[in-house]
Nucleic acid binder design. Structure first.
Length: 533
DNA sequence: AACGGAAACAACCGCAAATAC
DNA sequence: AGTATTTGCGGTTGTTTCCGT
């Protein structure tokens, strides 16, 4: 195979780099970077700073598209990059962060000083494969148990908190936001709903999904595996590819579903054949990625455009949804199935009561689910299916079941809100000044930083230092902290990240921890970097 | 030593948001 | 306001290295 960096392998496909017209008729090189190219790029950044990457090729003579330059700089040339294997602390943090936020590599990277999103992503994908092959749980046991405890605590407290359910907008806002957070994984992770091999304590954001779906290669029949697992709520490890992530802890199916979905649904295995509406089947016909890759997809901290109906119920009557034994997941299911249902969810405390479309969809979904229920009741009268049965039909529903009639504490929104409240907001330091320039993603250029140190210091005073990559990278913070501190920071960071999802609380969240708004040009000066070897 | 598979790493691609004009 | 460009992100693919047979 002709190497890309060899003569003749260069691509003139400008579109591959975003169609930059800056390239003109020049043939842009692809493939591995040479030392000379690195030097040129470093030199350029020293002189001109980061940004305007397309100009690099123009001004430096590099035959690389801006995109490639940016990537090279970000992943290899920028200062304070931490090379080498991940430490145990980092691995733990990654696992926890992934459990919380899914494939948000860039955001994870902001919490792992010196690490790049690409690095983390590669690590995670490799880890998945490795552990999958070894039949190990994807997430550390302590993480699972810890989260399980949290969930249990939430459940215990949910009755108390239910009293607050009627207390208006604030709580509702949290509920919406948390639902949004939870459904990130639904949207892009077909496995999340299509099977449930829930890891006890899984905080909902796609642990299993990641376990099974994140890595696509060499994973031939994930659907079969998940079906076999979910059908028995345990992993017996017979199939070679099976991931036994749920075998470490005895599992209560009801809790499993709760935790698995991160919702308040209560799965009643005894009745599960009453409600044959299948998540699995639905997902199979939904937005499932063809390769099963778990994607948390990209959602900005603020308004989120979603394919799933996570927030649709904010537009409807909650009580109706929650008390209707058929409606909860069926409605969701229907939405998930429908590729045409593409909602733009503005969760930022905007009034959710404006859509007639939603009501129509709910109605339609119920009608549909009713029909499907009738037909599938015939085939799902028995829950004791053999593996061969499972293999015969990819539409067999092993996750089906009646969701307990739930309302209040067990509602998905309510528990989600509880989760947020318990795990995040309580731990957040008070925020006094919304840092608009930060939360709005305003770029702080290096020049600004240099010329206005006071401004930077002022901004920084409103948020924990450790949230600032520049602070992290510019100091020995990461290396000097003790294990306890790391743990504490990790917890805080996770809590904060969760809070960040809450666009309804700009003061409490985005102003503090809008990591996205700290680009690398907030980092120490490029000219401080050691020479690239 | 040769081979193959797995792991690690690097880079590309497409998309979408942000920004500039 | 609309369009073009830039930037960032996540998924995917390709390459290299390591290791066991």
């Amino acid at each position: 195979m002709l190497r890309k960096d060899q003569p003749g392998s260069s691509s003139n496909d400008e579109s591959s780099c975003g169609g930059s017209p800056a390239a003109g008729s020049l043939i842009l090189k692809k493939g591995p970077w040479t030392l000379a190219e690195d030097a040129i790029l470093v030199e350029y950044v020293k002189k001109h700073g980061e940004g305007n990457w397309n100009a690099v090729q123009k001004h430096s003579g590099l035959s690389r598209c801006g995109k490639s330059c940016r990537l090279r700089w970000a992943n290899h040339l920028r200062p304070n990059l931490k090379k080498g294997a991940f430490t145990q602390e980092e691995e733990q943090l990654i696992a926890e962060l992934h459990a919380k936020m899914g494939n948000k590599w860039a955001r994870m990277a902001t919490l792992l000083p010196g690490r790049t999103d690409n690095e983390i992503k590669n690590y995670w994908n490799t880890r998945i494969k490795r552990r999958q092959r070894a039949g190990l749980p994807l997430y550390p046991t302590n993480l699972c148990l810890q989260t399980s405890k949290e969930n249990q605590l939430i459940q215990n407290n949910s009755e108390v908190k239910d009293a607050n359910k009627q207390n208006g907008e604030i709580l509702m806002g949290s509920m919406y936001e948390m639902a949004e957070f939870e459904f990130h994984s639904f949207k892009s992770n077909p496995w999340l709903l299509s099977y449930s091999l829930p890891l006890r304590g899984t905080p909902s954001s796609g642990m299993q999904c990641s376990a099974i779906g994140s890595q696509t290669r060499s994973f031939d029949k994930p659907a079969v595996n998940c079906i076999m697992q979910s059908s028995e709520f345990q992993c017996h490890g017979s199939p070679a590819n099976m991931i036994s992530i749920c075998e470490q802890v005895p599992i209560n199916p009801s809790e499993m579903i709760n935790q698995r979905l991160g919702l308040g649904y209560t799965f009643n295995p005894e009745n599960h054949n009453k409600n044959p509406m299948s998540f699995g089947r639905s997902i199979l016909g939904s937005h499932a990625l063809s390769n099963g890759t778990f994607s948390a997809s990209r959602h900005p901290p603020g308004p989120v455009k979603m394919e799933l109906p996570s927030l649709q119920y904010q537009e409807t009557d909650y009580s109706s949804w929650l008390t209707d034994p058929d409606s909860p997941y069926e409605a969701v299911d229907t939405y998930i199935q429908s590729p045409l249902t593409y909602f733009s969810v503005q969760s930022h405390c905007t009034s959710p009561r404006s859509s007639g479309l939603l009501e129509a969809l709910v109605h339609e979904s119920r009608a549909l689910s009713s029909m499907q229920k009738q037909s599938s009741e015939k085939s799902s009268s028995s829950s004791a299916l053999t593996p061969s049965d499972m293999l015969e039909s990819s539409t067999v529903n092993f996750c089906s079941g009646d969701w307990e009639e739930t309302s209040g504490p067990s509602s998905p929104f309510y528990r989600s809100a509880s989760l947020i409240n318990e795990c995040s907001f309580d731990e957040l330091p008070p925020c006094t000044v919304p840092s608009a320039s930060v939360s709005a993603g305003t770029k702080i250029t290096r020049a600004e930083q240099v010329s206005s140190p006071n401004k930077s210091a002022k901004d920084a005073s409103h948020r924990p230092d450790f949230f600032r990559p520049d602070a992290l990278l510019g100091s020995n913070w990461f290396f000097a902290t003790s294990q306890n501190l790391k743990t504490s920071i990790m917890n805080d960071a996770i809590a904060s990240l969760l809070a960040e999802e809450d666009g309804c609380k700009p003061c409490a969240t985005s102003s503090m921890i809008s990591f996205d708004s700290y680009p690398w040009n907030n980092m120490p000066q490029a000219y401080q970097m050691p020479e690239h070897d």
